[in-house]
């Protein structure tokens, strides 16, 4: 294995790890369910993709490589389906998204990010 692939794989793993943490921080910081869902989808797409591609570059055999590709395709196919099902169920059960008034913005900082129930 050449040095270039190794360094590239390390960079992808670190960046993927950072995106994972970002997604979870967003999950804690955002003010309501629907905005939190957008934060979660960061981890589902690019973070998963980067970490799995980083592992692919270090795969010892072609079988391992193929299995990683299979996992990536599976995650990318199912995560929007699960997200859509979740959003639709929440909306139909009467959960209303937090929306700003005309031209206004939601100031989300005063709310406690990880407050009690």
């Amino acid at each position: 294995m050449s040095m270039v692939t190794t360094y590239l794989s390390w960079a992808l793993l670190v960046l993927g790890g950072f995106l994972c943490v970002s997604g979870s921080v967003g999950l804690l910081r955002f003010p309501d369910f629907f905005t939190r869902m957008h934060a979660a989808s960061v981890t589902d797409t690019l973070a998963t993709g980067m970490i799995l591609v980083g592992l692919m570059l270090q795969a010892p055999t072609w079988i391992v490589f193929g299995k990683l590709v299979m996992i990536l395709v599976f995650v990318l196919l199912t995560s929007p389906t699960a997200g859509h099902a979740l959003a639709k169920a929440a909306l139909h059960s009467g959960l209303k998204p937090l929306l700003p008034g005309k031209g206004g913005k939601i100031d989300a900082d005063p709310r406690p990010s990880a407050g009690g129930v």
Binding site: L13, G16, C20, G23, S24, L27, F33, R36, M37, A40, T43, D44, A47, T48, I51, L52, L55, L68, I71, V75, S79, A82, L86, A89, A90, S93, L95
Partner: peptide
Amino acid sequence: TLYDRILAVNVFGTKTVLLIAI
């Protein structure tokens, strides 16, 4: 809400997939 918890469990599961692979 209930849906926040389901979402968190979903995210947790995706992370578990990554963790086991790593």
